[in-house]
Write a protein that binds this DNA or RNA. Structure first.
Lengths: 195, 195
DNA sequence: AACCACCTTCCGAACGGTCGTAAGGTAATC
DNA sequence: GATTACCTTACGACCGTTCGGAAGGTGGTT
């Protein structure tokens, strides 16, 4: 269906070039139709853009929610490190995430409000999901580390690694990810003596 | 001098709107000259852009270098937390930093290579400066934490907080910054029992 | 089976607008 | 007299958008 192809192609273009950088004629070209035909499916470029954004937001929220639900029987340490690697890998392969991040970081001014609302929805969800996770495993936490503290520190580290991901030097990401994780784990975990 | 005004205004515009979003006529307007007069000072939009970028990079490197040099007599903990707050504050007030971050994160495709080189220059500098700093204070580090580990973990946390800065919700940044710092410090420091 | 009305999808042509850029002219400065 | 800084005018390219119509499919009426 042309409609879905359009959304998918727009997602990629917006992710790579941003709102202003992406052009309707290129998008249409890639799909195999003329620029004017886009208006059969979408009211305007803005319409296409924010519709893409909303779906991307939902998709990102679903991913995290699903991931956490799926990890039932693992230990805290395993859940977290698995999430870390899987989420970072996701960036490489998933245009949805690339688009969502770019849009959240630097939205076009005229849609700033809508997009800020959307990304806050995502971040709030992330925080509450991870706080709940840490509550569930709170016996593995140091006594002076609350679940919320652990969650926020973890998510901050995650954001920091995403930045490295954007910079796009795999070896550096690898190093940072390993070292940050070790410091983080030492900072929250009750088992204090190991490497 | 018009030349400097142009660069300064361009910096702000590029920081707020990105390369494609910024327009030469708006920039000229803001300075008080006509668009075409820009070409007296710069060969092209690209020229203006990458020249602005190189100066921004130098400026960012200088800031960090200067900051670290200035903190002689403080304790490690104080140096780090002071850097954290000062660097985050810098983002609010300093357009140079905003521009540099935006450009490093999402450069226009046609200048990707030049800009990646520039931001790597910055990141490498950061890493070596902070590794040196942690070496200097290595007696305050846990025995199983190398200076490099501490540096990379710190810089990752810093990047994560910068992301929160971009999102632009001060209270959330405040919370994240406090909690991340406490976890980080527990993760690297030898003094293990305090809050 | 044949006709008609309707809807969807697409495209050609064209719109007004903005973009970055070029060339040439005019003062002022050194 | 050469150089510098700014101007006016104009250009072609591309942008997002609109309109009218061609083509094809669907469903209802006769």
């Amino acid at each position: 269906m042309t409609y879905d192809q359009l959304k998918q192609t727009a997602l990629i273009q917006f992710a790579q070039l941003g709102y202003e950088g992406a052009s309707l004629s290129v998008i249409a070209n890639e799909v195999g139709i003329k620029k004017q035909s886009i208006y059969t499916h979408f009211k305007s470029k803005d319409d296409l853009y924010i519709q893409t954004f909303h779906e991307a937001t939902d998709c990102e929220i679903d991913f995290v929610k699903q991931f956490i639900e799926d990890q039932e029987s693992l230990q805290l340490r395993e859940v977290l490190s698995k999430f870390l690697t899987e989420y970072l890998e996701r960036f490489e392969k998933n245009n949805n995430m690339k688009f969502f991040m770019r849009t959240s970081f630097y939205p076009p001014v005229k849609h700033e409000e809508v997009i800020k609302a959307g990304s806050n929805r995502f971040v709030d969800r992330l925080e509450s999901l991870f706080t709940a996770l840490f509550e569930q495993y709170s016996d593995e936490l140091r006594h002076d580390v609350t679940p919320e503290t652990a969650a926020l520190a973890f998510l901050t580290m995650l954001d920091g690694l995403l930045v490295e991901l954007i910079y796009g030097i795999p070896e550096r990401l690898q190093k940072r990810s390993k070292q940050s994780w070790s410091v983080f784990w030492r900072g929250i975990s009750i088992e204090s003596g190991e490497l």
